[in-house]
Structure formats: structure tokens, C-alpha cells
Design a protein around this nucleic acid. Structure first.
Lengths: 347, 347
DNA sequence: GTGAAAGCGCTAACAG
DNA sequence: CTGTTAGCGCTTTCAC
């Protein structure tokens, strides 16, 4: 049997309340009393029962984080950032994955699976505004990612349109004139909308034609999808001189196909990805990518949930995290390694 | 205010117990009564308070999973497997990462950070047997991964020695005679011990010399570590004709360096990784790898925790999950893609 | 089959 | 500064 406050109180010869005061670092306890109680706590190996505390306080100290999938390393890295940020605030993270499927996202958003949580951070893919509007749930919800809803929920994201424009501008500045977009779209939802918009806007403002034949729709967001999209463009007879992919895995899948087709990166086709995933830094050709500030996203998401929990904030906030373009070999031209034993790891 | 059992009972004009019976699918409730209560539940939108249930039952339905890092895609994929397996059993997963650092692993093993959990699945790197022996904690612990301890905790893993031997045997069968081992070792702990032992055993039984100059120690287990290790071997003037890496990221880092040095894979150097991570399937040269059955590992780990929780098992179990060698281009020789529009994704 | 009452371990009022 | 008491929402005996 676990030892309870009562046991400690009996052992120390004081009341339950006094022990509680010590455990909770209550201000007005005499040092002598504190020491005495602490001795009993140590002697009995007392550890507070969180379930009871939760029942009483109505808080659990647990934040749920629901991401589409961990197979995409961006989300794995984001999860790490959220876990660390939560730990800073003495909270713990319950992790779930939705597969980017609407019904899973709806379930998660209503906290069906995990009802022990104080708050919820969700990165939706297919979820609609209506699904969210129907949400009858009082735990605070914070949204992450590219989808934007006109609803009273905090949203943390980078400026996707601007980021996409930066990527495309970079390609154009290298002399590319036919920039393909490999992006995820399926069904009604259009998760890649903002990045596609940025692609379109930048091409237009550069005076280049916006050619929808160079936009490849995909079913998912993985390597295989990027590869399939690239094959689609090539077999359609198109030969773009640049590819801007929705994310890094898709960019890498595309590069794999380009390689198989005997097209060189970046000489024949320059490639830019999105997310700046660690994997992109170690391929035969390192990948230029838009790098969102994941650490900031994680931190802001956690702080946002906690602020709402504390009741300090009432207004809905759209928070922009930073981003920057990290230029590597897939656009900058092939550099050759100095065979002097130094290892060059592009940052 | 949330609606409680009492509210529902009042609304339905029955006792609390009856409502509880309905909520918990208790057998002996008349259908009429069940319907009536259910109507009140729906009308009021009642949802059970888990904190209260936990307090009463002493169970939370939460399993903690502590992994070294999610940056390594193997662990990301493993996390997904555990989450799914737990969901099958109506349990939820609390995720934590240790960074593979001993003090973090000790903390986690004692459930310090997360005291709301029914059980714990831990994949240790540096943790010592003594650390574990000192563990004064009653929540069931299940261990994952290559480290083996002679302690009363269930352990789920593949047969690392046999798996490593298979990998090395494959390389030898291709005519390789100088097989380097790129593995993680630092401080006193030797996480790569079993795989290194397999490497040694297979070389010996093939009548090849075991050359410690071909064993590269590293600080971590990432791309950069693999790259650095490869640079170390090459700058030492060694030219192995094969590399067996502790894991896929390290293998990919090594391949990157081989590429920079103008060495072709697999013509000059064949490479085998470990973990069969999805990333390995899409590089310019796809990676041959030992593929552990992650799905089985996740499932067995969850079942192991729950069995111990149910008190059905008392004996300590060492469970072996399956593995197989997936042969791809990094050993099998470069195949050229058929430019017929079909996309070939090596399984 | 259903109801009444006790209590899981803790915290928050309020007394003292 | 410390003790007493009530009750968070639920499950679990035990009567009826």
C-alpha cells in the first residue's frame, strides 16, 4: 500500500494540513516544523498521489499533443520541442497521432481519447472549420501548422506564404524559370494552400508564367508521394528547371527520381524543400530548405495553452514563429569536399 | 461546471449507483432503466471524470514511453507502434525523451517526472544495472533495446548478435573482406556491444581477421557521428571495402562522406545499416539494412506492461522480436531505373 | 435490480 | 502558524 498524507501526519505527530503545507511549499511554516515533517516524509518514502490532487484541483498537469505522424521527421522534432517546453513549466506531454485523417482529428479535438488533459495542441490536416465549430469541449485548444481557421482558437505558425515566396525567389535568383510545385492536396481540403499561394505570387511578381501543369497533387506527404509526383511531372513530358516541394521528405523523394532519370541536382534541376529536417543535411546532395523555428513553435504552443488555462488571456491570438531559408547544395551548385580530413556539415 | 454522476441521477430520478452501472456497462440493469438513464446522460452531455475514476481505481490508463530521442527516425516509428498498440488496449501514451543521458534515464525509470502512470516502457542507453537495482518504484517497467540487464524486468528486443552476424555475412558473401564497424561507444557504457560482438563473431567464423583499426567509436548515433567516424577511418589511411553501421542515420552519414571522397557505393564500398528507417529507402543509393519488427516490439512492450499490471505474470520474460535483412542498392549493386514512368520503391 | 453510504488522497476554507 | 472539516466524482461494499 502506498503511504498517504495521513500516514506521514501520524508519523510526524502533526495534522494532515501541516504535512500538506510542507509538501506544497506553503510560506508560513516554521523551519523546525518543516524539517520534522520532511524527515517523516523521507522516512516513509511518501510521494503525493497525483490522481487525488487532480481530482481536487481539476488540473492534471498533462498537455496532449496530436500530430499527423511521426514518420515525418519534422513532427518528430516538433514533438521534442513541445516536450521540452512543457517540462519547463512542469507539465507532461501525452502524444497522439492522427494520420492526418479527419475523423481522427475530430476525435482528438474533442479530447475523446484522452480526457485527462489540461490542454490540447493539435496540428490539423483535414479538419474543417465546421468540425471545430461543433467542438463542445472546454479544454483549451491551440492549433499548429499551415491550416488557418477563422475561429476563436490560438494559432501558432510561420508565415507560410512569405516562406514559400522566399524559397521561390531564391530559385528564380539562380536563373530558374520553370519552377514546379510538388504539394499535398487531396479531397476537398487543401493543406498546401498557403505555400502554393506563395509559389504563385512570387512567380507572378517575377513576371514568370504560372503554369498549373507544373503543380503536382499528391495523396500524402512522404518520400513516396514526392517521388510519385516527380515521376508524374516527368512522364508528362515536362522538364522543369526547379522543384519546390511541400516538405523535405517529398523533396528528397523527388531528388531520388531525378537521379534515376539521369537529371542532376542542382545543375539540371534545383530543389528546395520545407521544414529543414536533419535528414536533408546528409544526402548525396544536401537539401536547401525553408527552416521554421521549431523550438519557438513548441514553446509558444505550450505557453499559449497555459495562458488560456490561467485565464490571463481572453483574446484569440495568431502567433507567427520565425523562419529562414537554409541554402545547401540542391540549389547552390555542387561543392566538392576538401579531402583533408575535415568534415563539412552544412548547418 | 461539469456535469457529474449526481446530476445525471437527479435528472433521471434514479440513484447514483444506477447511473454508474449504466456508464460501466454493468450486466444486471433492465433495458428500460438503461435507456432512461442513457437519455439523461445524452441530454446533459455527461462525460465521466477520469481523475475521480483514477483516484478510486488506482489506475490511470496511461503508459509512459521514454526513448532516447525522436530525431532518430527509428524511435519515431517505434513510438507510433507503441501508441497504436496501447490504443488497442484503451491506454494512452505519455511520451518522454532522455537524450540517452544517464541521469535523465534514472529520473524516468523512477517515474519522477510522470507520476500518473500505470506502467513504463524505457529504452535505455547509458543506464547501468545498479541504477536499476536501486529503483524503488512499484510501477511496472519494461525495457527495450540492445542493453541487457540481469534484473527482474521484462525485456523486448531483437537478437542483436544474430542480426549483426546476418548483416556481416551478407557483406562477406558479396566478396567484401575488410568490413568496418561504425558504432556508438562513449564513456563506460557500450550500447553497441551486441552488434559489435556479432560483427566480430561473423568475421571470425568466416576466417577473416578481426581488425580493431576498422572499428570507429563515436559520441552519438546521428548522421554527423556516422560521417565523422567514416572520416576518421579514411584519414587513418584505411580503405575498407564494406561498412556496417550501428544504425541507418550513421550509415547514411558514412555514405555521404564516401561520396565526398569519390568512393562509390556499393562498387568501392558496400554499406549496411540497422533499423530499416524509411529515410534509407530514398537516398541516391538506397540503403541495405537490418529491419527489426517495430510493430511487434511496440505491441509486445505494451502487452508486457499490461500483463504485469494485471498480475497475471510473475516470471520475468526476455522476449525476442523478429528481424530480417532488407537488401537494397548500397550492397546489391547499382540498378538503373526503368524510365517507363513506373516508380520503384524498394520494400 | 437498485439504493445508501463510505471513502480513495488530497486541498481549501475556516477556526483556533 | 497549525488543526478540523468538508468535499472533489467516482466505485464499491452492503442492504433492500
Amino acid at each position: 500500500m502506498r503511504v498517504s498524507l495521513k500516514d506521514v501526519a501520524a508519523h510526524a505527530g502533526v495534522s494532515i494540513k501541516t504535512v500538506s503545507n510542507v509538501v506544497n511549499d506553503y510560506q508560513h511554516v516554521t523551519p523546525a516544523m518543516r524539517a520534522r515533517v520532511q524527515r517523516s516524509i523521507d522516512a516513509l518514502g511518501y510521494r503525493p498521489n497525483l490522481a487525488a490532487r487532480h481530482l481536487r484541483k481539476g488540473r492534471t498537469g498533462i498537455i496532449a499533443l496530436a500530430l499527423p505522424e511521426f514518420g515525418n521527421p519534422y513532427f518528430a522534432e516538433l514533438a521534442a520541442a513541445v516536450i521540452d517546453a512543457a517540462a519547463e513549466h512542469d507539465h507532461i506531454v501525452l502524444l497522439d497521432h492522427t494520420g492526418g485523417r479527419r475523423e481522427q482529428e475530430v476525435l482528438v479535438s474533442q479530447a475523446f481519447r484522452a480526457r485527462v488533459i489540461d490542454g490540447l495542441i493539435l496540428s490539423p490536416i483535414e479538419l474543417s472549420a465546421d468540425d471545430l465549430r461543433d467542438r463542445a469541449e472546454d479544454v483549451p485548444l491551440v492549433l499548429l501548422g499551415e491550416r488557418e481557421y477563422d475561429l476563436p482558437y490560438d494559432h501558432i505558425a510561420i508565415d507560410n506564404v512569405a516562406a514559400a515566396r522566399t524559397a521561390v525567389r531564391h530559385l528564380i535568383s539562380l536563373g530558374c524559370r520553370e519552377v514546379a510545385f510538388i504539394g499535398a492536396r487531396r479531397g476537398n481540403s487543401e493543406p498546401a494552400e498557403l505555400r502554393l499561394r506563395g509559389w504563385r505570387a512570387e512567380l507572378t511578381s517575377a513576371g514568370l508564367s504560372v503554369d498549373d501543369g507544373l503543380v503536382a497533387a499528391t495523396d500524402g506527404w512522404g518520400y513516396g508521394d514526392g517521388a510519385a509526383a516527380m515521376v508524374g511531372i516527368l512522364t508528362a513530358g515536362r522538364r522543369p528547371d526547379a522543384v519546390f516541394a511541400y516538405n523535405d521528405p517529398m523533396a528528397m523523394g523527388a531528388m531520388r527520381v531525378l537521379h534515376e532519370w539521369g537529371l542532376r541536382v542542382p545543375e539540371d534541376v534545383a530543389v528546395v524543400g520545407f521544414d529543414d529536417v536533419v535528414e536533408g543535411r546528409f544526402g548525396a546532395v544536401t537539401l536547401t530548405s525553408v527552416s521554421p523555428d521549431k523550438e519557438a513553435i513548441g514553446r509558444l504552443a505550450v505557453e499559449s495553452v497555459l495562458a488560456r488555462l490561467g485565464g490571463t488571456t481572453s483574446e484569440v491570438r495568431r502567433i507567427r514563429a520565425g523562419h529562414r531559408l537554409v541554402e545547401r547544395e540542391s540549389t547552390l551548385g555542387r561543392r566538392h569536399a576538401a579531402h583533408d580530413g575535415t568534415i563539412r556539415v552544412p548547418s
